[in-house]
């Protein structure tokens, strides 16, 4: 076996990797969309007046947050069929990522809502606005900019965790690299290409999030040094 880097092999596998990259981006996007919605539900559970629901919600979030995504994936993928629910690897992966990162996003939402000054609520109460109207027109428009950086960070986070999906057989980038590498007994090029693709996608994304953060701070009059 040749030891060094082989350009011909790298170029040969590049089209395959490009297609798989599309799958990775798709997985990250769908997982993120689910996480955004799941996060809302956890937020709702947090803010209901019922103490029991609050407690269950908190413990559930704590449990999901302090256990590895990898085992959660295995759990969903292998256990649900025992209960007669057979889902494809894609669906399992998306559900798990959505649940896992939903707990993180609910914290982002919570932080953003608490970032809106209490006096805003009092003013709305004084003006006799309904709760829904207060949320829709007063609180959410102010909370959203606060949430943007956190939300962006977790988009990048989900993107970087998508390789875990390969362990249950979702055909994303890392899965493709492992398959190509195993078939040809060469892991150098496939895994390096995966690394390069991740870098070229996530560094601009991270920079964009940082810029967003700065813009948001500026728009709120909080200029950071």
């Amino acid at each position: 076996m040749e030891m060094g880097w082989r350009w011909d092999f790298a170029i040969e596998i590049l089209p395959k990797m490009a297609i798989a990259t599309f799958n990775t981006i798709l997985a990250a996007g769908v997982g993120y969309a689910i996480a955004l919605i799941v996060g809302l539900f956890f937020l709702l559970g947090q803010r209901t007046p019922s103490k029991i629901i609050n407690w269950i919600n908190r413990e559930l979030v704590e449990f999901i947050r302090s256990t590895p995504l990898l085992i959660q994936l295995f759990f969903v993928y292998f256990v649900l069929p025992q209960f007669g629910i057979t889902l494809s690897a894609w669906v399992c992966g998306m559900i798990t990522i959505g649940l896992h990162f939903g707990t993180y996003l609910s914290e982002v939402y919570r932080g953003a809502l608490e970032g809106v000054s209490k006096t805003q609520w009092e003013a709305c109460r004084a003006l006799n606005f309904s709760t829904i109207y207060t949320y829709r027109r007063i609180v959410l428009p102010q909370a959203f900019p606060i949430a943007i950086p956190g939300m962006g960070n977790y988009l990048v986070g989900i993107f970087k965790d998508t390789p875990l999906l390969s362990t249950i057989g979702v055909a994303e980038l890392f899965h493709a690299a492992t398959a190509v590498g195993g078939y040809n007994y060469r892991y150098l090029e496939p895994y390096t290409i995966v690394g390069v693709i991740f870098l070229t996608l996530s560094i601009p994304a991270a920079m964009w999030v940082r810029k967003l953060e700065k813009d948001v701070n500026k728009a709120q009059g909080k200029i950071k040094k």
């Binding site: 965790d161 390789p163 875990l164 890392f174 892991y187 895994y191 995966v194 560094i203």
Partner: peptide, 16 residues
């Protein structure tokens, strides 16, 4: 190291 995925780094360290 922040830009690439941990799993990729892990496999790189072990297989590459």
């Amino acid at each position: 190291f922040r830009g690439t995925s941990l799993l990729v780094q892990l496999f790189w360290a072990y297989y590459v």
